[in-house]
Amino acid sequence: MPQLLSNEARALIDREVAKYPAEHKRSAVMGALRIAQTEHRWLSEELVAEVADYLQMAPVAVYEVASFYNMYDLKPVGRYKLTVCTNLPCALSGGVTAAEYLKQKLGIGFGETTADGKFTLVEGECMGACGSAPVMLVNNHKMCASMTPDEIDKKLGELE
């Protein structure tokens, strides 16, 4: 079987493994899945199996973790996954407006991907940044604050 995880990704996973007692290697599974997803954009069955193999875990145990936590994607997503928080504190300061603006601008609903495969839109829960509402995550790791329609336009323009 071809190797999906690059050597760089494997080295990063090794760093995660080193954080935990040797007999508790599976503690590194959340970090390993994040590293795998960052490299491949989403977690295919083959990729999950390779992570399992690398950590000497049963594939089903890795799948269980990948399906429990919302930020792991078990289906293909666009090149840019945009997650917008619509929880109450954000909603009081434009969170829902931002989400509606994105839906209209991209022509997609929550959980959908644009036809060109560029954007996926996701409804998020509190990101612990409610003071900077509206808040949007780009590809899980880049947080953008104060996402008014103007700022959204600017941000989308930067994403190639």
């Binding site: 954080k19 959340m30 429990f68 936590y69 919302n70 829960e125």
Partner: peptide, 10 residues
């Protein structure tokens, strides 16, 4: 001391 991250679960 080590850092561990969550991934979306309140």
């Amino acid at each position: 001391l080590h850092a561990h991250h969550g991934y979306g679960a309140y």
